[in-house]
Design a protein around this nucleic acid. Structure first.
Lengths: 232, 232
DNA sequence: GCTTGACAGGTTGTCTTACAATCTGGACAT
DNA sequence: ATGTCCAGATTGTAAGACAACCTGTCAAGC
C-alpha cells in the first residue's frame, strides 16, 4: 500500500484547482511585467480577465500576498508590490544566506542527478549567451537555480527561496536591469558548479554568496540610478 | 507630510480586518493545542466557532496555509499540518541558518534597544526558571526571539523566521517535548547575548547555530521516541 | 473470508447576489 | 490656496446555492 503522506503530497501537486490556476496566471502576469509594481489590481477587472468569481479570485490573491508579490492595503485593495532600496538590500542579503546554504548542501550531497541538471543548465546558458539569445539564457538560469534549490534537499529553504527569486525578477521589472553582467555572471555560476562537482561545501557556499553579492551590487546600482533619475 | 510608504505600512498593521482577526484566532487555537496536528478543520464548524462567513474564513485559512500551519488537501479540506522526522530535521536546519544570520547581524549592529530587550528577556527567563514558572519562561523566550529577529533588521528574514518558529511550537505539540533542557538552553541563550553585547558577529552566529542544533537534537530525539512508541 | 463495486452522506470548490464600510477625487465654499 | 463635504467606486463581508468529489458503508461476487 502507498504511503499516506506521499499520496497526499502527490494529490496536492497534481489536482489543479481553479484558485491555484488563477494564482499562477496572475503570478505570470505580474512577473512578465503585464502588471507593473505599484499598479492597483482591481478585483472586478481581474475577475473579468480570468473569468472567475470574486471569492475565488480573492483566495488566489492571498497566495500572491503570501509570496510578497502583491500587497493588500485594507479598504484599498491589492497592489503589485514595490520595493525600496533598503528592502532590496535586505532581499539580496536573505537570498545570499539561503542560496549559500543551498550551494553548500549541493556540494555536500553531490547528488548525481542534481550535478547533471546544473551542468546541463550551464551548457544551455553558455550556448544561449554565445548565440545572444537572452530568452533562452533566462530560461537556462531559471533551470540552474531550480536544480540548485532542489539539490539542497530542504523543503523549507525551497519554499522560502522561490518567493525571493520571484521578488527579484519583480525588482528587475522596476529597475530594468540590463543583463550586461552576463559574462561575469557566467563565470560565477561556473565556479559554483565546479565547487559542487568537486564536493567542496565551503567553496560552494562562498561562490554562491559571492554570486548573489555581485548580482546585488549590480541590481542595487541600477536601482539607485533609476531613483536618482526620478528625482530629476 | 507623511511618507506614503510609511503611511501604508502603518495602515496595514493597524486596521484589523475580520479575516486577519480570524486568522490570528485560528493560529492561536492551533498553537495552543486546541487543534492537534493531523486534525481536520471543517469549514462550517470553524464558521460557527468564529461567527464569520465561509468566504472570509477560507481567506483566513489561506494565510495559515501560507505559513505552513495548515495543509489544504484538494476536495478534502484543511488539516493541521503534521511533520515527519525528515521534515523536522530540515525545519531546524533552516532555522539554524536564519537564526545564525540574525545573531550575527545583531552583534554587528549592536542596536542598544535590541541589546536591552534581549537582556531583559534573559533576566525574565532566569527568574521564571528559578521560580519554576514555565508559562512565564515560555513568554520570556518568545520575547528573546522576537528581539533577536527584530534586531537583524531584515524584513525578509523576519517574515521567514516567524513561520518557522510557529511550526516548531506546533512540532512540540506533536512530540510533547518536556522542557528538561531548560538549564542547558539558558546557558546557550546567555552565550548568545554575551556575544551580541560584545559585538562579536562570528561568535554570535556560532552561538545561535549551536543553540538551534542543540534544540534540534533534543526535539528530534523526542520525535523518534514518540514515533517508536507509536509503532508498538 | 476477502475483495470489488455501487450507493449515500458529507464536505469542499465555486458562483451569484447583495449591501455596508471605506477610500478617492473633485466640486464647492471660505 | 486651503479646507470641507459629497458622490462614485471599490473593498470587506455575508448568505444561499449547487456541482464535484471524497469517504465510509454495505451488499454482491470470487
Amino acid at each position: 500500500m502507498m504511503n499516506d503522506e506521499l499520496q497526499l503530497a502527490l494529490r496536492i501537486e497534481d489536482v489543479p484547482t481553479v484558485r491555484s490556476t488563477v494564482g499562477q496566471k496572475l503570478r505570470k502576469a505580474i512577473m512578465s511585467g503585464m502588471f507593473k509594481p505599484g499598479q492597483r489590481l482591481v478585483e472586478r477587472e481581474l475577475c473579468e480577465m480570468t473569468g472567475v468569481s470574486r471569492p475565488t479570485l480573492r483566495e488566489a490573491l492571498r497566495l500572491l500576498e503570501a509570496d510578497g508579490l502583491v500587497t493588500t492595503v485594507p479598504h484599498r485593495g491589492p497592489v503589485v508590490s514595490t520595493i525600496s532600496l533598503e528592502e532590496a538590500k535586505q532581499l539580496y542579503a536573505a537570498r545570499g544566506i539561503l542560496e549559500g546554504f543551498a550551494g553548500r548542501e549541493c556540494a555536500r550531497l553531490r547528488d548525481p542527478d542534481v550535478v547533471r541538471r546544473i551542468g546541463s543548465a550551464l551548457v544551455k546558458l553558455k550556448a544561449a549567451f554565445a548565440a545572444d539569445d537572452l530568452a533562452t539564457a533566462l530560461e537556462a538560469k531559471t533551470e540552474f537555480y531550480a536544480a540548485l534549490i532542489d539539490g539542497c534537499q530542504n523543503a523549507f529553504v525551497e519554499r522560502m527561496l522561490r518567493p525571493l527569486h520571484d521578488r527579484i525578477t519583480l525588482l528587475r521589472m522596476t529597475s530594468m536591469s540590463h543583463p550586461r553582467r552576463i559574462n561575469k555572471s557566467l563565470r560565477e555560476v561556473t565556479a559554483i558548479w565546479r565547487a559542487i562537482q568537486s564536493g567542496d561545501p565551503d567553496l560552494a557556499e562562498r561562490c554562491c554568496v559571492d554570486h548573489v553579492a555581485a548580482a546585488a551590487a549590480a541590481a542595487l546600482k541600477m536601482i539607485e540610478q533609476t531613483s536618482a533619475e526620478k528625482e530629476t
